[in-house]
Amino acid sequence: MIERIAAFGRLGLDTVSSFGRSGRFLAGVLGGVPRPATGFPLLMKQLYAVGVLSLPIIVVSGLFIGMVLALQGYTILSDYGSEAAIGQMIALTLVRELGPVVTALLFAGRAGSALTAEIGLMKATEQLSSMEMMGVDPLRRVVAPRLWAGFIAMPVLAAIFSVIGIWGGMLVGVDWLGVFEGSFWGNMQSSVDFVDDVLNGMVKSVVFGFVCTWIAVYQGYDCVPTSAGISSATTKTVVYSSLAVLGLDFVLTAVMFGDF
């Protein structure tokens, strides 16, 4: 019994110390002024790796989710004779919820795991240590560009996801199921508010992008430098990021839309 309590206490202490380490890590990464001459090319390279290379999965997923939303929405709304409202239903669902959340989940799986594995492998092969011994801070040189790239790429990817989703919804709703195109776009325009919906959705994706990338780079940097350690860190990145995104989504939704 005492051992179980001790193990529980140890788990609590480990968790708190891990939060502390990740906070110090973040301060180390974001502290100091980056030199544009060296920082900009590194950032561009990471934006390509994290952002551009995530585009295929985001575009394809966005397209299918938009198409499924249109099909489901049409089935439900046509019972009430209000199938013309699928435009606003698809747009609101995507812009407020599915765009930021699904993009963040896909981002954690595609880019987050890659970031963790890359940094973890750099640690295991002593590349980070060798950088330190050359007088170069790996937090600034390796981690900071990746963190900023994730931070910038995620809202853009979420916006692309929503746009492609709406287009996919139109393909199914208008071109296949025959909803009047004027009602589809007109209802959407009249019901989607820029500040309440679009901007709030963007805020969500900014928060998710920051959290997912922070978890990914921290797990890579803090991993046990063995193949099992990297594998475990990569799994943790995907699990923690997904849970953090879903939990934060509830909190942010409650703050943004819970004012009844």
């Binding site: 002593e126 060798s130 050359m134 007088g135």
Partner: peptide, 15 residues
């Protein structure tokens, strides 16, 4: 970090 500029290290793996 400034001090390490005077120092070189050859790692076992090459790194």
């Amino acid at each position: 970090y400034a001090f390490r500029e005077k120092m070189g290290m050859l790692f076992q793996s090459g790194a």
